[in-house]
Design a protein around this nucleic acid. Structure first.
Lengths: 123, 123
DNA sequence: TCCATATTTCGACGATAATCGAAATGTATG
DNA sequence: CATACATTTCGATTATCGTCGAAATATGGA
């Protein structure tokens, strides 16, 4: 991943609404979520959210597919992986013991306890 | 880590110059780098860089210490860890096989091959 | 104390981004 | 084909950000 797309991804995530939306999608998995559902959950106007989702999409962090009259958005885990990898690239200046504790992130991440997303699966 | 500081961190990183500076510091390890060295390497005006470093500092991603007439900046690996953890929190919607490949990030990260930073250690 | 070095702070200007109402597009249904 | 629904696009306004020159602060050395 090169600088310019990393900045695009980080800029896309550097906004409360977009970050919340992205995290919802990350937590939603491959099934994804319709735009309206996200807007309702985050209490944003549909048109505002739409432009935010477009920014995330343009950065490659999420993708859209039409399903009936809804548009379903899904997180791109590969893009996420590239971004995190970019931040960690050549880290710790040759002292592996510094970046070793970063591995604990995944111990927590893989736990997958799931907090948000109330009745989305049943709706 | 709560939303508001995550957005601050991502906003801080969402800029070419700041992202480059942060990555230099991440790669520099605990020794850190003086502001002037970063400015020279990134071809930025000292005052511009200074305000960018201030933003990264305010977000908690780096810290400053004075050493002689230089000011040495260092990356905060703990803050970095929190940010990455926040992005990965409750990921994958209960399907661990999705976020498992994210673990490969660290296989590469821990390699610590070191690219940039030419004669900084000898200067 | 006087000067050079290293870095930051201030102030202004131009560029970019966020927000919202209104209108347009695409899709199902009667 | 007309209508309702889901979402996007457009246009304008306001706020925030990035950049740069100039001046200020802090440190070390002659």
């Amino acid at each position: 991943m090169e600088m310019t797309s990393a900045v695009a991804s980080l800029s896309a995530l550097a906004h409360g609404g977009r970050l919340s939306a992205f995290r919802m999608l990350v937590q939603a998995g491959a099934a994804g979520l319709p735009a309206g559902e996200i807007a309702r959950c985050l209490k944003m106007l549909p048109n505002s959210l739409s432009s935010h989702l477009a920014i995330l999409d343009k950065a490659g962090l999420i993708h859209a597919r039409r399903e009936g009259r809804s548009i379903i958005y899904t997180a791109d885990y590969g893009a996420m992986q590239e971004l995190l990898g970019f931040l960690l690239e050549d880290c710790c200046g040759g002292a592996p013991e510094i970046c070793a504790p970063l591995g604990e992130i995944f111990a927590r991440a893989v736990a997958c306890h799931g907090t948000c997303l109330p009745e989305l699966e049943t709706a």
